[in-house]
């Protein structure tokens, strides 16, 4: 079977999480910040599933399902805010450079 230790999996998840964190800090575009938050949530779910696989329990996968739900709701509301923001500002500024 697969010969990977939990530490390797957690290090992979941490590298992905900090990639997302750097993305949130260095980007000024709100769309890229949302995508970076998605990367961070995905990395957190990865760590949960790795820890669940370590103990052979299903709890880690269930936590990943909850993270998935949260990510879906967050993206829906965030994208609705972006659309509203863009449409309101486009009316006053024709060439909107923000998004």
């Amino acid at each position: 079977m697969i010969a990977i230790s939990l530490n390797t999996g957690l290090i992979i998840a941490s590298i992905m999480f900090f990639t997302g964190l750097i993305g949130v800090m260095i980007r000024k575009n709100i769309m890229f910040m949302l995508i970076s938050i998605e990367i961070m949530l995905n990395a957190a779910g990865l760590a949960f599933v790795f820890a669940g696989a370590q103990h052979g329990q299903a709890d880690g996968q269930i936590m990943f399902l909850f993270i998935l739900t949260t990510a879906a709701a967050e993206v829906a509301v965030g994208l609705a805010l972006i659309i509203q923001f863009y449409q309101n500002l486009k009316r006053s500024i024709p060439m909107l450079p923000i998004i």
Binding site: I4, L6, N7, Q54, G56
Partner: peptide, 19 residues
């Protein structure tokens, strides 16, 4: 720092059970 904390802990391979 997080990588150091993870590496300095104990390690065990995945038990390989498919859930």
């Amino acid at each position: 720092e997080i990588g150091y904390l993870i590496v300095s802990g104990q390690t065990a391979p995945f038990n390989g059970r498919q859930i």
